[in-house]
Design a protein around this nucleic acid. Structure first.
Length: 467
RNA sequence: GGUCCCAUCGUCUAGUGGCCUAGGACGUCGGCCUCUCACGCCGAAAACACGGGUUCGAACCCCGUUGGGACCA
């Protein structure tokens, strides 16, 4: 069997967005699953809007998601000679012709066609004129006027269009530059693309492109059109629905596994399964299981997946991921060992890395500050001083610092003093974290270590005594 | 306007003629667990757009309507 080749062809006019990432993902998964090749192509023919930064941002986004390509990036802007050659071939074979109808004339014809209730399409004026190249002349494809053009969509089944609907589309502008359709088809031909997996906004472009393949006498690739992604109001996903840039999700503290898992499940399912590793996806993904209807992007579910993957992550991995977020908050890296311990206590209660970094602040602050309200409610209680003192004493005597010994020590304190854990905990929590809610006390103490724990208890005791 | 595509809980979806008194997940609500906050666990509310066919039988097949979307202009 022929080797499968897929491609992802973004225009570098902005960042890699959610929708693009998903089509890239589907192409990548399909190629990986079939042992095929995934090609990255940058469609930068629109020189005015394309930028180097956007290209970089797209590449960075793909890399972050782990969607590695086997060939490319190829740049359309460097392939104009190839396009010209294909256009010339079509002209030589009489499959295309020059047309010098002025834009004004065309516009007038469209107007009157519309006024008469006819379709406003090119009427073929220059078709048989045998015109040569000229300063005003565009190149048009000579399309079949009757019959239908159709294809078998791998996701949607058969789709066909009446040829009368399609006029002689422009292949080259008057300056000789190729149009979008021509460039895409020539690229896909010359790059030996076997499967074109793209957004369903291209369904209507497909017959036009098929006609170019046919004029060129080339074999068609398989087409698979994946449904679009919508915002909560069911309109096309855009900035106004919130973050749409893949890299923005990185900055918000999302894990790439979570985004991948979310994106693949939007429009695709494998029974009742929700959680998929990349390896599982490569094994289980199938185009025929991709749904046909557009899907609404749901941040809540993404967030849930993210918290899931955070819980699954190793403490040490989280620690290194956390560093940039902590740096942004002005903390210096306290070392991976300590950070990993902290992360371990936080990962069950954080939905994003950013949230985790925020929750980790008390671990990293040299001096805790106690919120006045909490002081009033907790430290001001008559038994608080005694609790801090007693527990400090008991902890100082622990031989091995760990959750079990700590628990044992607390049991002893509770027995001796008759104060239940419920009352013991608040002043200690406030003393150790400066907060009224935090990870479990034993966990916190283990993460802090003996020295920090005792120091913080002492400081809190001083604070309480100072009143 | 023309052409094309789509239609199961609020959202993502399972479902490919009988297994469906329609399953799972997110979210929501209630409970349990508990040193706080979470995690976790248990439970609840919540959907086959509508109308015709086909069939012994339809969420599933066909037609139409409605609604949404895309492309072209």
């Amino acid at each position: 069997m022929e080797k499968i080749r897929t491609r992802f062809p973004p225009s570098p006019t902005g960042y890699l967005h959610i929708g693009g990432a998903r089509t890239a993902l589907f192409n990548w998964l399909f190629a990986r699953q079939q042992g095929g090749t995934f090609v990255l192509r940058i469609e930068d023919t629109d020189q005015a809007r394309s930028t180097e930064e956007a290209t970089q941002a797209i590449i960075e986004g793909l890399e972050w998601l782990g969607l590695d390509w086997d060939e490319g990036p190829f740049f359309q802007s460097r392939r104009t000679d190839i396009y010209r050659q294909f256009i010339q071939d079509l002209l030589d074979q009489g499959k295309a012709y020059f047309c010098d109808c002025s834009p004004e004339l065309l516009e007038k014809k469209r107007e009157s066609a519309r006024a008469q209730g006819r379709k406003p399409k090119y009427d073929g004026t220059c078709r048989e004129k045998g015109l040569g190249p000229g300063p005003q002349a565009v190149v048009r494809l000579k399309n079949p006027e009757t019959g239908t053009t159709g294809f078998q969509d791998l996701i949607r089944g058969p789709i066909s269009f009446p040829n009368e609907e399609l006029d002689d589309l422009v292949l080259a502008r008057s300056d000789g530059s190729p149009t979008y359709h021509l460039a895409v088809v020539v690229d896909d031909i010359t790059m030996d693309i076997t499967h074109v997996i793209r957004g369903d906004d291209h369904i209507n472009n497909t017959p036009r492109q098929i006609q170019i393949y046919q004029a060129l006498g080339r074999r068609l690739p398989f087409f698979a059109h994946v449904p679009m992604i919508l915002g909560a109001d069911k309109t096309r996903l855009s900035k106004r629905h919130g973050a749409t840039s893949v890299l923005a999700y990185r900055e918000m503290g999302y894990l790439p596994q979570a985004l991948i898992n979310y994106l693949v499940r939007l429009g695709w399912a494998h029974g009742d399964e929700e959680i998929f590793s990349k390896e599982e996806l490569i094994q289980k993904f199938s185009l025929s299981q991709v749904g046909k209807s557009a899907g609404v992007f749901n941040q809540e579910k993404l967030l849930w997946l993210n918290s899931h993957y955070i819980k699954e992550s190793a403490d040490r991995d989280l620690a290194s991921l956390l560093v940039p977020f902590l740096r942004e908050k002005g903390f210096i890296d306290p070392g991976l060992d300590y950070l990993a311990r902290c992360a371990g206590t936080l990962k069950m209660r954080s939905k994003t890395l950013k949230e985790m970094a925020e929750a980790a602040d008390f671990y990293l602050m040299e001096e805790l500050t106690f919120p006045p309200e909490a002081v009033k409610k907790i430290f001001a209680l008559p038994e608080s001083g005694r609790i801090l003192e007693t527990v400090s004493g008991a902890l100082a005597e622990i031989s091995e610092w760990g959750e079990n010994p700590l628990e044992k020590a607390f049991k002893a304190v509770i027995e001796q003093t008759g104060i239940p854990m419920k009352q013991l905990a608040p002043p200690l929590r406030l003393a150790l974290t400066g907060k009224t809610s935090s990870p479990g006390l034993f966990e916190v103490m283990v993460a802090l270590g003996r020295e920090r724990t005792l120091k913080r208890l002492q400081k809190a005791l001083d604070f309480v005594k100072a009143g």
